[in-house]
Design a protein around this nucleic acid. Structure first.
Lengths: 245, 245
DNA sequence: TACTACATCTCGCAT
DNA sequence: ATGCGAGGTGTAGTA
């Protein structure tokens, strides 16, 4: 495809804030928080409607280069090469495009927001509603609370009045989960001036090293499978409800 | 665009392992590690050559849904709707496509790898080569070493023989950086049976809370600006060198 | 804005 | 395969 024509289509798309996507043969220089260079090869480039820029190689899940919105984007042809210069707050990229294979540009209309289930907040919700998952005598007091001790997933006390902190992890808990729990427990001990605060780790599994550290610090592991709502069901129900209202 | 034609183009692209990209009007159900539903709207969908799947809304840097490679992808038309079913190891998505606006599919050739500079490894490199950045009497012994105590950025000793552990962060260090350092220091103490191991945090800055915790644990903060090579320069030099060899 | 922690984190590396 | 930590992490929530 002729580079002058490509430049025209892209600049029209930019002026109309369309979603621009194209395949090309290019090299990429990046400079900002870090620096990188990627020699010539075939890539996919997209400029989204908020001027997010992302450049993908043919494989892999993450963009090889990107700019956060809103990036200023300019195109010019120099020595027979289409040069794309983009810059955002912290970073800039220079793309030398030797060939453009195809371009699509379109205004996309989408006001929807995703309904996502299965995050850590829902797990701590479940534990607060079902405290026996932690211990028969666990009484939760708060959940997902920002305190001066830290961001504690579930906080409460045991039957004998001992304060208890629960740290939730949706996946196999590693060393960092234990250090996180330890930090909250230590902080609460020092601020409250008490020498006994119970620490619980709620997760579906725990790594061996983390389990050792947990035992060293006299914390308890509780196997908890994180919950999931059926969001499609929920969405449908809401739609039906709206229909009848 | 006719949905039957769209299905044909996509399936041809899949059979040739091409990079397929298209704009469409669709809804998306996701189920796997989490669950989500996104009601109908205009989206961009790409299936990469390794069968990575990503779906983007018109704005924002991250895909709203995705599948890790290699995903199995199938398309069928049912009740006048093109249905895209994709499944990878842990997850699956169901996309109901009411309209396809445009499709591009192409085999991209790209054997290049990115040369990235400004990562933590280069920072620990610099410290090992310039130990006085940490302390006048710091003698580094190793860097970026996987030990049973953890992954220690720079390890060495001071003039009086005290062992020293350096944790590097490229950005403002927070609480987790201190707990990480603390974990290495504590573990090294207990394994070696000594009661004094020096801990250094090397970073361009540190948050107030982290600084307090650092002081509580008698660690030291050293202001270090992470280095950056000029990778484009380096690439050019290598090219010139190759030319003369 | 700075700080904190989650993420369908992803990715690479070492065990 | 699993464990572990970095990331140009991004993103949301809060003070």
């Amino acid at each position: 495809m002729d580079l002058t024509e490509a430049q025209l289509i892209i600049e029209q798309g930019l002026s109309k804030n369309e979603f621009i996507s194209f395949f090309c043969h290019c090299s990429i220089s990046y400079s900002g928080r870090a620096e990188s260079y990627l020699d010539f090869g075939d890539r996919f480039i997209a400029i989204k409607q908020d001027r997010t820029v992302m450049i993908h190689q043919p494989t892999g899940g993450m963009p090889i280069n990107y700019l956060k919105a809103p990036a200023s984007c300019s195109f010019k042809i120099e020595d027979g090469i289409l040069i794309f210069s983009g810059s955002s707050r912290d970073d800039e990229i220079h793309v030398e495009i030797k060939e453009v294979f195809s371009i699509s540009s379109r205004k996309l209309i989408d006001g929807q927001k995703q309904d996502l289930s299965g995050n850590e907040a829902e797990m701590s919700d479940m534990i607060k509603d079902n405290p026996s998952l932690i211990s028969p005598d666990f009484k939760p007091l708060s959940r997902e609370e920002h305190t001066k001790y830290g961001f504690i997933d579930v906080f409460g006390h045991l039957g004998d009045g001992t304060l208890a902190i629960v740290e939730c992890k949706r996946y196999t808990a590693g060393l960092s989960a234990i250090t996180q729990l330890r930090r909250y427990v230590e902080k609460m001990k020092s601020v409250k001036g008490i020498d006994k605060v119970a620490g619980f780790l709620a997760a579906p599994a725990i790594t061996p090293n983390a389990h050792q550290m947990l035992k060293d610090w006299k914390f308890s592991f509780v196997e908890v499978i994180p919950p999931k709502r059926n969001v499609k069901q929920r969405q449908r129900q809401r739609t039906i409800k709206q229909f009848f209202e």
